[in-house]
Nucleic acid binder design. Structure first.
Lengths: 236, 236
DNA sequence: ACGCAAAAAGTTGTATACGATTTCGCTGCC
DNA sequence: GGCAGCGAAATCGTATACAACTTTTTGCGT
């Protein structure tokens, strides 16, 4: 599925080296190898990928359009540090669009799609039982891929791109505000949703999706701890 | 309202000259002063705004992320020429998200917002009765602003940005495939939607919104006339 | 020793330069 | 007359250079 997602955008383009850098950094952010707030200086990025600052800058700009990095004028680019309010908006957006995407996907889903989804779930479960950071990161990506694949099946490239943005930003939010050591997504809920789709019970599938999103959000601690930095941090 | 929309993004940023160029070009595209397919060479854009190719390029890249221009490797940037399929996806996306946005907006709407919406409608009506291209362009923008303002009222900046993209791209689609000489949006339908909101009849408001979108789409001729260029163009 | 000011270092914003790729027009051949 | 091939012009992709701004360090005075 990963290849399918990429192919759709690749086509003739492979636009430029900047694209590759953008993708590499995005992956690093989504997999949480880069923490929110980390500074991404143009020179450093350029050196890291052996390109000039021009390309590094282009990649960072691109990521800022996706909301994954924030560039501050004359100060530089940082891995985005979503505020609690932003976090709420991200999940509100997901609650708003994912049921609709699910409905469209269900209308066009093929047996092949379903088996691919199942495969994804299996992989996810396997990673879940594994130990180690590598497995954890792969699991994070896999759980997002479930939602992305639904968007892909829906056949609407625009919604798919939007979901990619939302999933990526969700990962950032979870990295910042997530509490449970458990992974980002309740794995079993994904399976339930597929089952509901197979049973042609669309309303139930949507309801499950909403619950699922609410579940993820419930694991967050979005109390505005605005730096809490001075006295409060030390008076105990 | 225009100022409000801009202020929200301006804040401290005003990031750079590229942003201004991007906005100027976008406005030109949305108001249909630039037709789909028009070539936007980096040098030309740079000269036009008296900046280097660097900034022109950045602006064009930004617009390509919004789907308003398509850049082809080693060939240049063009005002986007959405395919019929893309057009359908754009409107499918709008049908998917606008009812949700409407619901959120209705939940937070204030009397002040309503009067602002009414004001927008009045302006729209006034422009509608005027003659001339300038009025036509202003009307196009105004009719889009109605949808954008609902997104703004909804309080979700992410959905707002997404709607901005969808409305802008819709304008392109209408420019390409629209048939009626009449303006893009049925003006009266906007008023009906506001009325339904005021009556707390959300379901009706959503239904009106869906009809409204369907209406716009119905005015399009999305038959794939694939260039129609060879024999068909001349055999009559 | 502390605080403030000025300079130095580092980083971003923009312009220019150069190599690579495409496009277009020309010449020459069929 | 038309088409293939070649060369020039235009345009894009990327690197480098310089100016403007920010941050840090240094040094002086109190």
């Amino acid at each position: 599925m990963k290849s399918a997602v990429k192919a759709q955008q690749a086509e003739d383009s492979a636009e430029t080296g900047a694209q590759q850098i953008r993708d590499a950094i995005r992956e690093a952010i989504v997999e949480r190898r880069l923490s929110p707030g980390t500074k991404l200086s143009e020179s450093d990025v350029g050196n890291l990928f052996n390109v000039s600052r021009t390309l590094a800058r282009a990649a960072l700009q691109a990521l800022s359009y996706e909301g994954l990095v924030s560039v501050e004028k004359n100060r530089g680019a940082f891995v985005a540090y979503p505020s609690p309010d932003e976090a709420r908006q991200i999940f509100a957006a997901r609650r708003l669009v994912e049921p609709g995407i699910l409905r469209e996907a269900a209308a066009r889903i093929t047996p092949g799609d379903i088996s691919q989804l199942r495969e994804l779930l299996l992989e996810e479960g396997r990673l879940m039982s594994e130990r180690g950071q590598t497995a954890r990161r792969a699991e994070i990506k896999a759980s997002g891929d479930f939602h992305l694949m639904l968007a892909e099946i829906s056949g609407n490239a625009i919604m798919q791109r939007f979901m990619e943005e939302l999933v990526a930003r969700s990962s950032l939010v979870i990295a910042l505000y997530g509490q449970s050591t458990a992974s980002s997504c309740g794995h079993s809920e994904h399976g339930d949703i597929i089952a509901a789709i197979e049973n042609d019970d669309l309303d139930r599938a949507c309801q499950l999706m909403l619950h699922h999103i609410a579940h993820i959000e419930a694991d967050l601690d979005l109390r505005a701890r605005k730096s809490l930095g001075l006295k409060e941090a030390f008076e105990l």
